[in-house]
Measured scan of single mutants.
Amino acid sequence: DETGKFLVLALYDYQEKSPREVTMKKGDILTLLNSTNKDWWKVEVNGRQGFVPAAYVKFL
């Protein structure tokens, strides 16, 4: 149950560059965990948590 969690859509592919980031593919649906930083949002994708560039995702 994803109640209270926001979902975001990956607009572009992103390859993680550090262990704190996660890789996503364009079209992936991600669970948004934290968006307090304007540049990097914490998400969960494929069972992994990490950061992606905020400009690469949008709210569903």
Results as ranks from 00 to 15, higher is better:
E2P: 14
E2W: 03
G4V: 15
G4L: 12
G4I: 13
K5I: 13
K5E: 11
L7T: 08
L7N: 07
L7H: 10
L7D: 05
L7P: 05
V8W: 07
L9H: 05
L9S: 06
L9T: 10
L9F: 10
A10V: 08
A10F: 03
A10M: 02
L11A: 07
L11Y: 04
L11D: 03
Y12K: 10
Y12P: 00
Y12R: 13
Y12H: 13
Y12T: 09
D13A: 05
D13S: 08
Y14P: 01
Y14W: 11
Q15N: 13
Q15T: 15
Q15M: 13
E16F: 05
E16S: 15
K17C: 11
S18R: 08
S18P: 04
S18K: 07
P19Q: 09
P19W: 08
P19N: 11
R20S: 14
E21K: 04
E21G: 11
E21S: 06
V22N: 04
V22E: 00
V22D: 00
V22A: 05
V22M: 09
V22H: 03
T23F: 04
T23K: 04
T23E: 04
T23N: 07
T23M: 04
M24Y: 02
M24N: 00
K25G: 05
K26N: 04
K26C: 06
D28N: 06
D28Q: 12
D28C: 05
I29D: 01
I29K: 06
L30E: 01
L30G: 08
T31L: 15
T31M: 12
T31W: 11
T31I: 15
L32N: 00
L32M: 05
L32I: 07
L33M: 07
N34R: 06
N34A: 09
N34W: 07
S35H: 10
S35W: 15
T36H: 12
T36K: 13
N37M: 08
N37H: 13
N37R: 08
N37F: 07
K38I: 10
K38F: 07
K38E: 11
K38G: 10
D39Q: 11
D39E: 12
D39C: 12
D39T: 12
D39Y: 15
D39L: 14
D39K: 12
W40Y: 07
W40E: 05
W41E: 00
W41H: 03
W41I: 08
W41K: 02
W41T: 04
K42M: 15
K42A: 09
K42E: 14
K42L: 15
K42G: 06
V43Y: 00
V43R: 00
V43G: 00
E44S: 09
E44L: 08
E44M: 09
E44Q: 10
E44R: 07
E44V: 07
V45I: 15
V45F: 14
N46W: 05
N46R: 11
N46Y: 08
N46C: 08
G47P: 01
G47A: 06
R48G: 04
R48I: 09
Q49A: 11
Q49H: 08
F51N: 04
F51Y: 15
V52F: 01
V52E: 01
P53V: 02
P53S: 02
A54N: 03
A55W: 08
A55P: 07
A55T: 12
A55C: 13
A55Q: 11
Y56S: 11
Y56N: 06
V57N: 00
V57Y: 01
K58R: 13
K58V: 15
F59W: 09
F59Y: 13
F59C: 14
F59G: 07
L60H: 08
L60P: 06
L60K: 05
L60M: 11
L60I: 15
L60T: 08
